[in-house]
């Protein structure tokens, strides 16, 4: 099976939350107790029961109509998932990277300690990993059981407007780039978020922070420094692992 990817076109999202519920339906994740806290986003955040969440954010435009951003958040299924890198040190086999599709999968059979989970979560630039009370990590599975049978992920299938797309990475990249070109005339800040690094590519048309704090991975550190940090990181974590 070819490398898979999503393209999430936020310009077409109406926040109907079909994806949010279809995800719960397929995974049989429960509805959790929530409260109205002054906005329409609910539940307030992702959880071990909520792998897909439409985030709502309202922004004032002085003298004009407000902007209301919808961001159907989910795991980005990174090309090189940092969560896995951490987990491999902490709880071997807790995170799996599927060779066939590129799906990053949390293994429900492997428990992780709360402190270790914290590091896994911290490693995720998109703040996706969550953990259940039983110490099992949870997040979007790319509906690997569906896609292995040639079906669309539940969230993509249920999307009415074409905001959610899924397919072979090459075609998805083409689609995303084509759409980016289409909307550039209307939205000068249009961009595809972290295209090379993730398998879930968001098209956003404004400052990413207006959508969600973790919409786009922060890219403020220069490459050189990052490489240096990376080199430092490897032996130390190994050491910690040995001590731990």
């Amino acid at each position: 099976m070819a490398d898979k990817s999503f393209f999430i076109d936020t310009t077409k999202c109406t926040a109907c939350r079909g994806c949010q519920i279809a995800c719960k339906q397929w995974n049989k994740n429960p509805g959790t107790k929530t409260l109205q806290q002054g906005n329409h986003q609910n539940p307030a955040d992702l959880s071990a029961s909520t792998f897909k969440l439409v985030r709502f954010n309202e922004v004032e435009v002085p003298g004009g109509e407000p902007q209301w951003f919808f961001f159907p958040d989910q795991c980005r299924h990174c090309m090189s998932p940092p969560c896995k890198e951490v987990a491999d040190e902490k709880a071997k086999g807790a995170i799996i990277h599927d060779e066939k599709t590129g799906a990053v999968i949390f293994n429900p059979k492997v428990k992780i300690k709360p402190g270790d989970f914290k590091e896994v979560r911290e490693a995720c630039p998109y703040d996706i990993p969550r953990i259940s009370g039983a110490g099992i990590m949870a997040k979007c599975t790319m509906c690997f059981d569906r896609i292995n049978e040639g079906m669309l992920p539940a969230c993509v299938k249920t999307c009415p407007t074409g905001a959610m797309n899924f397919g072979d990475r090459k075609e998805i990249l083409e689609k995303a780039n084509k759409r980016l070109e289409e909307v550039k005339g209307t939205y000068k800040d249009a961009m595809l978020a972290n295209t090379d690094d993730v398998r879930v590519i968001f098209l956003i048309v404004d400052d990413p922070k207006k959508y969600h704090k973790f919409a786009v991975a922060d890219n403020t550190i220069g490459i050189t420094r990052k490489m240096a940090l990376k080199r430092l990181f490897q032996p130390l974590t190994s050491l910690r692992h040995m001590i731990g």
Partner: peptide, 18 residues
């Protein structure tokens, strides 16, 4: 009575301007 829907919009609200 559907847990997924009441989770998404749980309570009576009133929308008002700033």
């Amino acid at each position: 009575w559907l847990p997924w829907l009441i989770e998404a919009e749980p309570q009576m609200f009133c929308e008002i301007s700033i």
